[in-house]
Design a protein around this nucleic acid. Structure first.
Lengths: 189, 189
DNA sequence: TTGTCTGCCTATAGTGTTATAGGGAACAGC
DNA sequence: GCTGTTCCCTATAACACTATAGGCAGACAA
């Protein structure tokens, strides 16, 4: 992606994250960049396509990183901890893209929405697989519902972008803390 | 609230939840009810005020129920489990109101947004207080970050409305499962 | 010098959306 | 039979937003 176009997309991501896709106007995006509204259309064909571009950037990488972890040689405990940690990595440099992906992708046209939805479900399956394996080999508690545990953990993780900027904690402190909580829970052992 | 107005608000909540505040039009709401767009303005003065009404309904009750639990005589473990369970109660009868509260309240005018924001922060403090007390009395692990644990648990809980309709699990099964996960984690003891 | 590309501009058509104004019909209570 | 209330209607003003058309200036290459 050409440098200038990346700047345009940064502005779009920022505005979409702050105001939502429908609440954001192309004028808002242009204002961030200091250019005229119509000038944006040299960089994207429509507002909807801008959203698609932002969402794809926001979603990309999660599945690939997770796949490498799951295919590795670690045990279920280390794999799950690594999955949770790696889920935080993209927050460092493009948090807005991820926020847009999480909450605005529902407004994509159905074709691209479905494509991106497949990545999400793929990621869920990776978590679920690790948890199921951990139950089977005795690392995790018997009687757990792997699907429910997956949704619980991903819910916890996907909530992070909403508060990370307000709480004064470094990303890797949060990542480690959440991995520890998911594995060990609150109760004293 | 008069019966008919409650029906209007149900429709508004449904449409706001499905399309977002800015993505929803007053025409969409009227279509759900089978009346004309302009007729809605007998029931609310503006779309923004309709959002405020829906958000207040969606937010109400959480803090009050939590306060009763926290003020009770149980130990930290039972209090936290009860907090998590009680967080699911309103999902049974007005899930759409809660979805709107969770994701659309950011579009409220600042006065009402701040009022509703105070309820949220109040709820967070109740969770945090229980967790801190539990650490102090040895129920929960030493070294936990109570604030981080609160945000993790609330993130997990606030993710539920997004998937509850798609996964075929009863609400109280979910509520118990999540309380168990938060307390015990995944690892075998 | 001519052509091409990038980056931006002005102007505006076309459309969708909110909200207001001013009714009308049915029904209840007196 | 009069009055008020509830529920809904038509019509439209006023405005905001997306996207297109067509152009201009500077950089750079042939």
């Amino acid at each position: 992606m050409p440098r200038r176009q990346a700047e345009i997309m940064d502005a779009a991501a920022r505005v979409f994250a702050a105001k939502g896709f429908h609440g954001a106007t192309t004028q808002d995006i242009a204002d961030v960049l200091g250019i005229k509204q119509a000038s944006l259309y040299h960089y994207f064909a429509s507002k909807e396509i801008a959203l698609e571009t932002v969402c794809i950037v926001g979603a990309s990488g999660f599945y690939e990183r997770a796949k490498i972890i799951v295919d590795g040689a670690d045990g279920a405990r280390d794999k799950l901890a690594a999955l949770i940690r790696s889920h935080h990595e993209p927050l460092a440099d493009h948090a807005d893209y991820i926020r847009v992906f999480l909450h605005q992708r529902q407004f994509l046209p159905s074709t691209s929405r479905r494509k991106i939805g497949r990545w999400s479900r793929g990621l869920e399956r990776l978590f679920e697989r690790v948890i199921s394996a951990g139950i089977k080999d005795g690392t995790f508690r018997a009687g757990l519902d792997p699907r429910l545990a997956t949704l619980a953990i991903l819910g916890m993780l996907n909530g992070v972008p909403a508060w990370i900027d307000k709480e004064g904690r470094a990303i890797d402190v949060i990542a480690s803390g959440l991995a520890d909580l998911a594995l060990g829970g609150l109760l004293r052992r």
